[in-house]
Amino acid sequence: MLTRSLSYAVVALIVMTGGVSAQQSADPQVTQGEETDSENLLERFSEESERFTQSEGEALYRTTCQACHMEDGEGSAGAGAHPPLANNPKMNSKHFVAGVILIGYHGMPGFSGMMSDEQVAAVTNYVRTRFGNDYPDPIAPEQVEALRPPDDSD
């Protein structure tokens, strides 16, 4: 909920990660750390605007799925919900998971235009073997290709 706090004037800027804050940049040692940290952070962005350039399942998860399904695939619920990917029997089907990533599901947008078959396979295999999931049957890029809608030019 949006709340107005009375104490805001005295709330100091709390730097959770090594943030680029005005207080810190005075200290050369911290500045060193900051640069590395913000560099790591900036690596989360794709190098191209229209396609994801990351290739590993984990990197792809951290830059897409994590937005909604959260850090550990736990999801989140309020008025509406982002379903968990942990402890979710629907993860049983690799075709379902890859299909959802390609074409979306209800409010979730699809990523077919922004990810190659290899990338969709990598992130599918990642989420099906993490967060307590341990499915033994990986999906191959060719199987992803077969799931793409016909008019999908990749």
Binding site: L41, R44, F52, T64, A67, M114
Partner: peptide, 23 residues
């Protein structure tokens, strides 16, 4: 059709501020 907004959405509130400053 840009990818960036997803990546921003994965960040904590503090990380978003850090990234906006760094860029």
């Amino acid at each position: 059709g840009r990818t960036f907004t997803y990546s921003w959405s994965t960040m904590t509130p503090q990380e978003r501020i850090d990234a906006a400053l760094a860029l």
